[in-house]
């Protein structure tokens, strides 16, 4: 089932979509200056990985992929929670959410 058959959607269609989403997320991390938008791009990359897990779990017909998506979600949410708590503390201190201010933490 080569990829060029656009009609019956197979595993490679989903993988291509998640590769595109991953690339957009990576660009977000590299290009944007605002810390919170960078964290959102990381969430986007994690979601692209989740899509790959689900695609493989669906087309290879075993449930391990879905269990893995569960754990990836928990870790991504925990990372977002701590990341935002940090960004907010820094924002309150420096009144600015620009990545440049984070060098002050070198200490």
């Amino acid at each position: 089932m080569p990829m060029n058959s656009l009609i019956d959607v197979g595993l490679s269609h989903y993988l291509a979509l998640s590769a595109a989403l991953f690339a957009i997320g990576m660009l977000g991390v590299l290009m944007r200056r605002n810390v919170i938008v960078m964290m959102m791009s990381i969430e986007l990359m994690l979601n692209a990985v989740n899509l790959t897990f689900i695609a493989f779990s669906r087309f290879r017909d075993n449930m391990d992929g879905q269990a893995m998506v569960f754990f990836v979600m928990t870790i991504a949410a925990a990372e977002a929670a701590v990341g935002l708590a940090l960004a907010v503390t820094i924002f309150k201190r420096f009144r600015e959410v620009n990545i440049r201010y984070f060098e002050h933490l070198k200490g």
Binding site: F70, M73, A77, A81, L84
Partner: peptide, 22 residues
């Protein structure tokens, strides 16, 4: 006046929500 309570409630909501989803 920025109240810390709002985003702290949102953070705790995420964590307890995941535990309920499990």
């Amino acid at each position: 006046k920025v109240s810390v309570r709002f985003y702290l409630t949102a953070i705790l909501f995420i964590l307890f929500d995941i535990e309920i989803i499990f």
